[in-house]
Nucleic acid binder design. Structure first.
Length: 752
RNA sequence: UCGGGGAUCGUCUAAUGGCAGGACAGGAGCCUUUGGAGCUCUUUAUCAAGGUUCGAAUCCUUGUCCCCGAACCA
């Protein structure tokens, strides 16, 4: 189905579809409308909508608007616009607020079933009663109110009888849970606030952990994808589903790593600070990592989708190289942005000598892009070139214009510089004289525009907002890392005539300068161009001012992170748990002692006596089969066969039967492993159809494999010994009864 | 009474006991009327140590490091 693209979520979906757990796939993108979407959301959008697309499923856009004090209609509108601009069409556009009646109904059900209660504690008290990471919490004095009282109180909460913060509805779960999220989580709080969608209909609002699973369940979401920080919430998510259902399909939550990107910040709070404190011009400032900012900058939906594809989906926290985004943007633009000429800092050049044409026909794309189209380019003997392309004192590898040097004008003729005619106050050249070189050859090709017909433009040169790769690291204020040079506005640029009426939103490559988008600020007669990206520079033309921004925070900041880790209490190790279990349960200790008396080393005895399931399995089997053999199979092989299933259900008699057969030599170890997996799946050993160990003609088994892979055989002989496993694996596949060790040796012999 | 996750080239990500692969970045070369693009070649990785196995990134053990969790936020 989606075999070409593999990530852990798609693996799970493939599995769910294969086993029939689900017949359809339904996902959702659930933003809270309290800010603009950013590139991190773009990843989530592409994952959720991408899955729906790949599996012919559905994906809803659902506003998670359960907190009226933070949310706003402005954000609602921007979010849907951004999702659609990215190229996705929601199956439905929905609002959590529309489920408020159903959520409330289920809350009453919980109360009636004695699974929720109204608490009068203040927020500080609730926090205090909750305990800490390493200490259990205490029950609220109101935890055991009667159902009737709870129901009455809840209804009065809903009726608006109490002020904000006076009471909350809490689930009655377990104040001593190691998972803080399960310590009687809040379900409803009182908020006499106007909601953007429900107005003043409600004065109690559901919390995320209550609302989200119900929303998913109501919509029939099968795979509810969120980010890693919600891992602890999953237990509660499942609890809510268990106590409000039955639901079919029953949603399941999966967590993936959120996107972190170099040279930017992603939290809504920080983005909001940038906007509110005017460090940028708005949510859609082209330097912002918001989708609207990137759109205004000139990034295309295709580029953003390609980026999402490139970074993949996984569970490991990561920091993505900003170069990957820039690559995707350039890759798209190279194919799609027509070329034009423009100079950012014009230097007038008076060209002497004859010019035979008035215009040249210049193609929009270079031959390697291979797209059609061209425009006429006026040519004359008064032109502008870019200040970048001139040097008073050219270094040896300078390939552009200097006194006495010759360059070719793009799409035009060659010129040789004769004389500097004028300079500005700063000493920059403003006017040159040059002459045409007939049939000449230039050092390089430079861009230019015709002086008479070119049009003025304001060029906004955007760079990275921050000077450092990780502005949030180091403990200081992220604003300190803002790059004051992230925007440079150049007023006096000139671009070729054909751009005079370029459409707002159109994207162009100004050859050798960069990619640009026509900005919304453009007015008739005043073209405004945003630089989307520079061109890639294999040899930096401005090597002098290169001084790349420091990539790594300094060492001192490093230390701080570690100190933080050290303050965390240390968890118990599995070994300690097993020791504890034994001291609690004499039966386990007895198995430990028995294992020792069988001659097993202490570490094995320890592993076999940590829980009752494993311990009984071992002691039963060790009565009939040598203990060392049993230990080895239980410790090393059983976990994989079980694949997460509990040991308790594993049939010990079958294990014994299998091990006896193995001992008798009637099955090979390879077969024994597959048998173990089958037993774990509930089969009886005697019912298994297993090829008996037999004398396989190794030559007959191996030769065809070698013959079928002559190139690999050659590589092996040349020293790529890793291929041995490949050959053995192939042979084992074709001759299941073979003895792997013998095959291994025989392949080795044969390939010399 | 702490619990939940994670660790593979510089970066991101594959490999589900059998060839450690791809992409980005880097390097070398070719090509080029964009110092762009393209093409070719190429450097570089399984957190550590033990164990099981013919064979381990993958299974077991111990250890190390990183992230998340104690809002009436989501």
């Amino acid at each position: 189905m989606a075999s070409e693209r593999n990530d852990f979520i798609r693996d799970i979906i493939d599995d769910d579809l294969r086993t029939g757990r689900h017949v359809k796939v339904a996902t959702r993108f659930p933003p809270e409308p309290n800010g603009y979407l950013h590139v991190g959301h773009a990843k989530s959008i592409c994952v959720n909508f991408g899955i729906a697309r790949d599996y012919q499923g559905t994906c809803n856009l659902r506003y998670d608007d359960t907190n009226p004090t933070k949310e706003d209609i402005e954000y609602v509108e921007s979010i849907e616009r951004d999702v659609r601009w990215l190229g996705w069409s929601p199956t439905a556009v929905l609002f959590s607020a529309d489920y408020f009646p159903k959520m409330y109904e289920l809350a009453e059900r919980l109360v009636r079933e004695g699974k929720a209660y109204v608490d009068d504690l203040s927020d500080e008290q609730i926090r205090e009663y909750r305990g800490t990471l390493s200490e259990p919490g205490r029950p609220s004095p109101h935890r055991n109110r009667s159902v009737d009282e709870n129901l009455d109180l809840l209804r009065r909460m809903k009726g608006g009888e109490f002020p904000d913060g006076a009471r909350v509805l809490r689930a009655k779960i377990d104040m001593a849970s190691a998972n803080m999220k399960m310590r009687d989580p809040l379900l409803y709080r009182i908020r006499h606030a106007h909601h953007h969608r429900t107005g003043d209909a409600w004065c109690i609002y559901p919390m995320y952990d209550w609302a989200h699973p119900i929303e998913d369940a109501i919509e029939g979401i099968t795979h509810s994808i969120c980010t890693l920080e919600f891992e602890n919430n999953r237990e509660l998510y499942d609890w809510v589903l268990d106590n409000t259902g039955p639901w079919n399909p029953r949603p399941h939550q999966y967590e993936m790593a959120r996107l972190a990107l170099e040279y930017t910040v992603m939290s809504k709070r920080k983005l909001l600070t940038l906007v509110k404190d005017h460090h940028v011009r708005g949510w859609d400032d082209p330097r912002m990592p918001t989708i609207s900012g990137m759109r205004r900058r000139g990034y295309s939906p295709e580029a953003l989708r390609a980026f999402a594809e490139m970074i993949g989906v996984a569970k490991a926290n990561s920091m993505v190289d900003i170069g990957k985004l820039e690559y995707c943007v350039r890759d798209d633009l190279n194919q799609n942005a027509p070329r034009a000429l423009g100079v950012v800092r014009p230097v007038e050049v008076e060209v002497t000598g004859s010019i035979d044409t008035k215009t040249v026909d210049a193609p929009f794309f270079p031959p390697d892009v291979g797209k059609p189209g061209s425009r006429p380019l006026p040519v004359s003997n008064r032109i502008y070139i870019d200040r970048e392309d001139w040097s008073d004192d050219p270094p040896a590898d300078f390939k552009r214009l200097a006194l006495g040097r010759t360059v070719r004008l793009r799409h035009g003729y060659c010129i040789t510089a004769d004389e500097v005619v004028a300079r500005d106050a700063a000493g920059h050249v403003t006017k040159l004289r040059a002459h045409v070189v007939e049939g000449g050859k230039g050092l390089s090709v430079i861009h230019w525009v015709d002086a008479a017909t070119s049009v003025p433009a304001e060029v906004r040169l955007y760079g990275r907002l921050f000077k450092v790769a990780q502005p949030e690291e180091g403990g200081g204020d992220f604003l300190e890392h803002l790059d004051p040079a992230s925007l440079e506005i150049v007023e006096g640029a000139r671009v070729e005539q054909s751009l005079a009426n370029a459409e707002v939103g159109s994207r162009w490559q100004l050859e050798r300068v960069g990619y640009f988008r026509v900005d919304e600020d453009t007015k008739p007669g005043k073209l405004v161009l945003n630089r989307i990206s520079t061109l890639r520079e294999t040899v930096a033309p401005k090597a002098v001012e290169a001084a790349p921004a420091e990539k790594e925070p300094s060492g001192g900041e490093r230390k701080k992170e570690n100190a933080k880790a050290k303050t965390r209490p240390k968890s118990k190790s599995p070994q300690e748990y097993r020791a504890e279990a034994r001291s609690r349960d004499p039966r386990l200790q007895a198995v430990f002692d028995a294992a020792r008396s069988h001659g097993l080393p202490e570490d094995q005895a320890d592993l076999l006596s940590g829980d009752l399931g494993t311990a009984t399995l071992f002691s039963k089997a060790a009565d009939k089969v040598p203990a060392a053999l049993v230990a080895k199979w239980i410790i090393n092989e059983l976990p994989r066969a079980l694949d997460g299933k509990p040991v308790d259900g594993f049939a010990g008699d079958e294990l014994v039967a299998m091990l006896e057969a193995l001992q008798a030599g009637s099955i090979t170890p390879v077969l024994a492993k597959t048998a173990l997996a089958q037993i774990a799946a509930g089969k009886r050993f005697s019912d298994l159809k297993l090829e008996p160990a037999k004398a396989v003609d190794l030559g007959a088994a191996i030769d065809p494999v070698i013959a079928a892979n002559p190139d690999k055989a050659a590589q092996y002989k040349a020293g790529k010994t890793g291929l041995l496993g490949f050959f053995v694996g192939q042979v084992m596949k074709s001759s299941p009864g073979a003895d792997a060790a013998a095959v291994n040796q025989a392949v080795r012999d044969r390939l010399g």
